[in-house]
Each structure stands twice: as C-alpha cells, then as structure tokens.
Write a protein that binds this DNA or RNA. Structure first.
Length: 888
RNA sequence: GGGCGGGUAGCUCAGUUGGGAGAGCAUCGGCCUUACAAGCCGAGGGUCACAGGUUCAAGCCCUGUUCCGCCCACCA
C-alpha cells in the first residue's frame, strides 16, 4: 500500500461515515457483561427528545467519548449507556405547538389521544438527536439505548415512588408552590428563573375601621391585596407597640383583617407594615400558617381573578393590577408609587411570569436523602472535579427544601395513586388497585398529575441498567466511574441522582463527577437564538470535520473556565489533522508493507530521541486524562506530533529512508517510523477517532480496528523508553541546527544555498555529540561542509557566528556577508543576554538567596550564570572582530 | 444580600506542589527544500488589572481596590 492511496489533503466526510458504520457493524461499542476485565462506565446525560444538537451537547459528548475510547484502549470493559429524556413540559409544549398549527388542541384530543400524538412525534423526530451524536463519533453502546418513558424505566419510577411513599418520604398536601399559568402546572423551585425587572412599589394605606388614618403597606403586586388576610408588624417595633386598634379595613374588599405580630417582618423596610397574602406569597403562607390565617385564593390556575376577588373576578392578573391601582388612587388610598428593580420568577420552559399559588401537590421530603448525599462527598466516595463545585453542592444540599414533584401536564409518568370515591382514601401502589383497601369501594379515581421529568432522570444511573431487577449489568457497571456534565444541571440532576442512588442502591451513583464549562460565543456571551450568535455544531462538522471539531473542544476544556468557541481555532486544528494526515502519507511512501520489528542495533540518535519523546508524551497524556485535564492532554499531543515528530524526526529520518545510510539503517528507521506513527495514532484516537482509524488501516504494522489496539503503556513490546542520554544529545544537535538557521533567517540567506560551517567545540560532551552527529546536523541545517576544531581561538574570515552551549559555530559567508547586518544581529543577541544576566546576577549577589534557597536551585542559577557569561564573552569577542573586519 | 470564576502578547486562551513568561491565530522577513503553501525556516511583540503584604524569590500565596461574567436567595 502506498501514498497514492491517500488523498493529498484529508477529506473527512466519507471517511467519518465509513468508519462509524464499521464500528457499529462490528459491535465495537458493545459493553461486555458479564466481564472479567476491569470495568469503566458512564451514563450519558440524556438529551431531551425534543433536542437538536448544540455546543453544550457537543462538548459534553466529546469529553465522554474521549474517556470511553481511552479506557477501552487501556484494556477496560467500557459501558457508555446512551438514551434520551422525555422532557415532560418541553415536549408537551412542542407537540402542542404542532397541534395548534394543525388547528387543534390537546384538550380537543383528550388525554389518551394526546399522549398517542406525543409518542408518534417521538417516533418521528426523537432519533434526530441520536443521529447527531453519532456524527460526533459517540461510541455509546447503542443496543442498550434507553428512554425515560420506556417500560423498564417506567417500572423503576413507579417502584421508587411507591417505596418512598411507604417510607413517608413522599407526601401530598396543600402548600404554596410556583405555578406557571401558561403551562398550567406546578413547578419546582429550581424550575423558576429569577430575572431582575423594572417594576413599581405601590404604597397603599389600609385604614383603621371607621377612620381615614391607617397603616401603609408596600407591594409590587397590588392585585394580591384582594386576598390579604392580615397586616403584620414586628413584635418589637415601637411604632406599633401601643396601637389602639387590632384591625384594619382591607380597601376595595371592605374586609376587616387583623394586625398581627411576626418577627419575619423587617422593620427597616418601608413603614414596617407588611400585607399578608397567604395564598399568593411563600412567606405570607408561612406567616399565615403560624397565625392560622384564612388562605384566600384570588388568582386561579390560568392567571385569572377568582370569585373571591369580588368585582375583579374574571380579569387577567395584569389587567387586574391596573384596575386595582386605579381604584385605590381614586379612593385616595394610594400613597405613592416608586420605581423598583426586583426579581421576578419566570417559567424555565415558557418564560411566562410564575405565580406563587396555593395548591394541592405531591412532595418529596428531601432532608434525609440530602444528608446521605452530603456524606458521600465529604467521605470522598464521590469526588467532584474541579473542586470549586464542592461548596456549591454542599450549599445547595444544606439549604434544600422539599421537592414538588407533581405536574399538571399529561406527558410524563402518571403518579400511581388512586382515590376512593366513597371514602376518599388515597392508595399508592405498583399495580392498579381494584377496590379501596379501607372501605372496599370499587370506584377508584386515578391521580391525573404526572411526575417532574427530573424524577425519572434522578434514577438514570441504575434504572438504565435494569433496576429493580438484579442484572449482570448493574453488577458489573454500577456504580458508574464518571459522570460528565455541565454545572447548569448540578442541582436539577446530579444532586438528585446522588440522593436516589444512595437511597435505592445503597451506593453512590458515580465515583467521579467531572463538571465541565459552558460553551459561549467568541466574545464570552451565552449563545442564544435571539442574539443570533449560535454556532451550530453540525455546520462546524460539515466545514472542518468531526476530528478537528472534537480536538478544539478538548483543547479548550480547561477546568473551571468557560469555553469561548471560535471557528478560527477549529480551523487551526483542522490544519493539525491535515498535518497528521500528511505525515502518514510520507510514512506510507516509505513503509511499503514492511513489518520488520525495530532492530535495536541500528538505532540512530533521532530514533532513540523520538522513542523517548513518545514515551514521555504517553505518560503525560495519560496522566492528564486520568485527571480530566483534557486541554493539557490535547496540547501535549499537538506539540509532540507537530513540533517533535514532524518537525524534527521525519526530517532527520529522511537520509536513512532514502537509502543514503545503508540497508540496515533503512530497515531500522522504517521500523521506528512505523512504530512511532502507530503508537501516536493510538494516543490520538480518543481525540480524533476517524482520521486515526483511517490511517491505521493503511499501516503495515497494524491489524483490525484501532479501537482493538493496546495502549503503549500496557503492552510488553515494543515500548518506547525514556532515554535521557538521547534527549541531551539531541538538544545539542538541535541547538546547533537552530543556530545556523537563525543566521540564515536573520541574514536572509535562501534555504537552497548550502553553507559551510566551522564549529569550535569547548567541552568534551558537545564535541563528541557534534562529531558523531555531523551528518544529521548537515542534513537539517543544510550544510555543504562541517569542519570541527576542538578549542582554539581561530576564526574564519567573513563568517557569521552562532553561539551555543559548549560550542561556537562559524557560518562562512565569504563575499556575501553584510557586516553591518551581522554586527546588528550580534548586538541584539548580546542585549538579550545582558538582560538575562542582570536577573541572574541579582539573585547570586543576594546573600539571603544563597543562604536560604534550596541548594539545587542555587546550583541551577549558578550554572546558568556561567553559561550566560561564556556566551556573552564569545559574542563580544566576535563582535569586536566583526567591527575590525568592517573597518578593514 | 450571600457565594463563585475571571482580568497574562493585537485577538482567543494555557500556565497544579512559588525558583529561567507560553500556544494558536494575526503581524514582519525569507522559502514552491522530493509528506504537507491547510506548508517550511526565522523574527518582533507582555511593569502577567491596580495597590499593599508574606518570602531569599510571587503570574502563582494573603489583604484591599476596580472592572467583567455567572450562580444562589422568601425584604414585601
């Protein structure tokens, strides 16, 4: 197989499709169960069925795929569990919109038909997101794909519900909850987004009965006053200690309501008098329960004023607000209105203003569950990476309030509770009961509410593995190794999985939680449709290829920092993919199907060096990946592939490959080249699965899929080894070559012009290396001749000088040297040295440094000073000679 | 109101036990050198937000200031 098989530039698209099909057909993503091997598992954060791939998914899935592919190469049996979330409200909204376009509504269809319509929608569109994940290269075990509403998961949900109910951890009651009038459902506290809004603070006088005088209260929601059942003041507020009356007359409603005392009231705010609306404000609700106040609901579930709002009945809540204000003004009871910025709750799905409302709902008592979840992190059984999120997690867990889990929508897990028509008894059970357990009545009404979507997601790590059955998969893969997620769902999802996992599995759901950043636009703004700054990952893939895109995401994934996505960077990594591609083309030109192993006897310096560098790279990359430092791993590989393997090794290998060093050297170099390239592909594979698989199949040493290969660290032979001697020697060679190139660049000498160089060596080591590596230096510095003179002070005429450690190189430029230019070049070098020397000298002249700094540090600085001084001296001598020559 | 993250080259960002400031892109100069012009070789460019402090030594640790971003919160 030769280079002709590879296109001149890498073209990702057909390659990607081909290999993805290949992987799927050959079941390379399948997790073995049961298995003897060490296991590694990840459950995917299930994307919403309504979802289309965005940057957040792309990052999330790429990082998981990197981990999974890496662990497979390390020999683990890997399960990456895929699936989707039914996303109750979001999906219901989408399907309702579709129905609306078709001129109907869910109410017209009725519950059963509507749910059928949602399932149908899911059949049609639900796989879109899955196909998009596949384009990213996601190596999920697709045969195990789950859905939060499938039979198995529904059974898990029901089991958990019944269990928690029987334990008293699920209860039902009338409480104040967040109500979205548009979605017509209760929301949990988390599902409410607070937004700062410019509003008004209305100061209203509530007169004492029969008087014009009264108490002034302030509110931002005047329409709620219709449901006021008290006015509260602080018990120690001197202004109100000796009030003659105990009541005020609620304006507009003409209801006499008590003045009560409660420490909740802030004396500093306004007049220190607080109107109390137990049915429409969470704090007022608490106060109301403390003082046994009536709870009057004046806003209904559609945001319309109720019967109890008197003559305002039937008005929309915001229309009513205006009407109330107008009437108060007319009656002279509106004292004043001031502008105020305040937080207003909005529905996280539809953005409508949320109304605190009194309602009968189901709740989970979370305190006991949270305690275990806190302990699990404190004890280190679950590790959160990066650590900055630990405190956020604790904070939330410590202040957690009961979780409202019932939703008044249709799409979701219907709550398994039945009420007896006859006696009103409530039954919670796995299977539909036929008669009332209390009175034997046979008319049982099933609860119409469904569960919060996050209730089923909370069970994801074990429900997807077959729980409540005891399955081999659970046995082998639970607890999962790593959860990879964004911080935006730390509370929604991660915290709740911790609670449920610990409660039902008696074991943490994951050992590590890796919390990644948010992807923003290149200016750091959140991507949003309204801003028009959304970058579609699929477009990026189309334009630059999946591998380049994935590499960019990995390279940007620094811990604790948001990712600013710019296409420019993706372009840069496309170049990197192409660089690898061309390196492979070059290698294949020379490999010609040879499968000879590396022959140790004929290793040249560059061979030893590149093997050592490969070993170092492998160690650092695996260390970085083990610590979730994806960006570091990506940077290390980039540097090795481009700036070591391509820039130095391939160039150094050319003479041997082209046959000018004899057959043994040629064979050996081919073997090293093949091995290093193959191992490099393995290291790169987790990041860029497609191009590495493509090249892999062209290489002579390789067999089958790269996914089945072994990480270099984990195999007996042939491993790359650390080789300090080779690295040190190569450093001398590289310095010499760079020195000549520098002269060439600064003096504008064409690369085509071969140069003559004389080296004056000053120490034995350097002398030996340069002596032995003459050919290599000549090759890479493009020299005609290289003469070596140990010691001495002779200096060729008309030469430019490059000073390196242990040697001075004279580049003959007889006839073409521009002395002026050379003088400037030397002066520049000397200037740089002087700066560095000044810093070093300062340290070494400091007694405290000499006495207090650790000896190795002092030694290092001293050595550096010596080195700089020698260089400086040599350069100064040279400069003096140039000046003489210039004059002469 | 509380908490968190950030301010490093023109731009986007790395920099984990405190000990010689880095990458990509952009800029400048030289090259079609037989893998790659999506390339090669070289160069320029930074009082690491500001002010103090700890230390022999601070981009890194501590305090304060300032600007930007985010999260949480039941002051109407």
């Amino acid at each position: 197989m030769g280079a002709n098989d590879l296109a001149k530039g890498y073209e990702p698209h057909q390659v990607e499709e081909k290999w993805y099909r290949f992987w799927e057909t050959n079941k390379l993503f399948a997790a073995a169960s049961p298995t003897d091997k060490p296991t590694y598992s990840i459950v995917i954060p299930p994307p919403n069925v309504t979802g289309v791939l965005h940057m957040g998914h792309a990052l999330n899935v790429t990082l998981q795929d990197i981990l999974c592919r890496y662990r497979r190469l390390r020999g683990d049996s890997v399960l990456w569990m895929p699936g989707t979330d039914h996303a109750g409200i979001a999906t219901q909204n989408v399907v309702e919109k579709k129905l609306s376009a078709e001129g109907t509504t869910r109410h017209a269809l009725g519950r059963d038909k509507f749910i059928d319509a949602v399932w149908q929608w899911r059949e049609e569109y639900g796989s879109a997101i899955i196909n998009q994940l596949k384009r990213l290269g996601a190596s999920c075990d697709w045969d195990r794909e789950r859905f939060t509403m499938d039979d198995g998961l529904s059974r898990a949900v029901r089991t958990v519900f019944v269990h928690l109910y029987k334990e008293g951890l699920i209860y039902r009651g009338n409480y104040i909850i967040n109500w979205c009038p548009r979605c017509s459902t209760a929301l949990s506290d988390l599902e409410v987004e607070h937004e700062e809004i410019d509003g008004h603070l209305y100061h209203i006088r509530y007169p004492f009965v029969g008087q014009t005088d009264g108490l002034v209260v302030a509110t931002t929601r005047p329409e709620t006053m219709l449901g006021d059942t008290a006015v509260a003041v602080h018990p120690e507020d001197e202004r109100y200690l000796n009030l003659a009356v105990q009541t005020v007359l609620l304006p507009l409603m003409q209801r006499e309501i008590p003045i009560i005392k409660d420490t909740y009231v802030d004396r500093e705010f306004g007049t220190g008098a607080l109107k109390v609306t137990p049915a429409h404000d969470p704090n007022d609700f608490e106060i109301g329960r403390r003082h046994q106040l009536p709870e009057i609901k004046v806003i209904d579930d559609n945001g319309v004023m109720t019967e109890d709002a008197g003559r305002f009945k039937g008005l929309d809540r915001f229309v009513c607000r205006k009407a109330v204000v107008k009437e108060l003004e007319q009656q002279g009871l509106l004292v004043r209105v001031e502008p105020i910025k305040h937080g207003v709750g909005h529905c996280y799905r539809c953005k409508d203003v949320v109304e605190p409302n009194l309602s009968k709902q189901w709740f989970v008592k979370v305190k006991p569950l949270a305690e275990k979840a806190i302990e699990a992190v404190e004890s280190g059984r679950t590790r959160i990476v990066p650590e900055v999120w630990i405190n956020t997690y604790y904070d939330w867990m410590h202040n957690i309030r009961d979780w409202c889990i019932s939703r008044q929508i249709w799409w979701g897990h219907r709550i398994p509770a039945w009420t007896c028509d006859a006696c009103g008894d409530v039954m919670v059970a796995m299977e539909t009961p036929t008669r009332c357990g209390k009175c034997g009545g046979e008319h049982l009404e099933r609860e119409t509410d469904v569960l919060d979507t996050w209730f089923s997601s909370a069970l994801w790590p074990f429900s997807t593995m077959g729980w409540p059955e005891k399955t081999p998969v659970l046995d082998a893969y639970y607890p999962t190794a790593t959860l990879v997620t964004g911080f935006d769902i730390l509370f929604f999802w991660v915290a709740r999985m911790m609670m449920m996992g610990l409660h039902f599995m008696a074991e943490v759901p994951f050992k590590d939680v890796y919390v990644h950043a948010l992807v923003r636009d290149e200016h750091g703004k959140k991507m949003s449709k309204s801003k028009g700054n959304v970058i579609d990952p699929l477009n990026v893939i189309d334009e630059y290829g999946t591998d380049a895109f994935r590499y960019t995401l990995a390279a940007f994934a620094a811990q604790g920092r948001d990712i600013k996505m710019s296409e420019k960077r993706v372009e840069g990594y496309r170049h990197f993919v192409n660089k690898l591609w061309n390196a492979a083309r070059f290698a294949l030109m020379h490999l010609d199907g040879d499968k000879a192993p590396i022959a140790g006897d004929h290793l040249a310096l560059a061979d030893r060096w590149v093997l050592s560098r490969l070993n170092q790279t492998m160690t650092s990359v695996s260390g970085a990946l083990d610590g979730y430092r994806f960006n570091e791993a990506a940077a290390i590989l980039y540097k090795f592939v481009w700036h070591e393997f391509c820039d130095w090794y391939l160039e150094a290998a050319k003479p041997a490959l082209y046959g000018s060093e004899g057959d043994d050297r040629k064979a050996c170099t081919k073997a090293v080249l093949a091995q290093v390239l193959a191992d490099t592909l393995i290291l790169l594979h987790p990041f860029m699965p497609f191009v590495t698989e493509e090249i892999w199949h062209k290489l002579p040493l390789t067999d089958g899929s790269i996914m089945r290969s072994t990480y270099p660290a984990d195999r007996e032979y042939p491993p790359a080894r650390p080789d300090d001697e080779a690295e040190n020697a190569m450093a001398v060679v590289m310095a010499a070559i760079t020195g000549v190139r520098n002269v060439r660049g600064e003096m504008n000498i064409a690369p085509a012009m071969a140069l003559d160089v004389t080296v004056q060596t000053e120490d034995e080591k350097a002398a030996q290396v340069i002596e032995q590596q003459q050919a290599l230096i000549k090759q890479l510095a493009r020299l005609n001749t290289l003469a070596i003179q140990p010691g001495g002070n002779r200096r060729p005429q008309g030469a430019a000088t490059a000073v390196i450690q242990g040697a001075t190189l004279f580049v003959s430029l007889e006839g073409i040297i521009d002395f002026d230019q050379e003088r400037k070049r030397l002066e520049k070098e000397i200037g740089k040295l002087a700066k560095e020397l000044a810093g070093v000298n300062k340290k070494l002249n400091n007694e405290d440094f000499l006495s207090k700094a650790p000896a190795p540090v002092v030694e290092k600085v001293k050595a550096r000073q010596a080195d700089l001084l020698t260089k400086q001296k040599k350069l100064e001598n040279t400069l003096a000679m140039v000046q003489t020559a210039e004059k002469g």
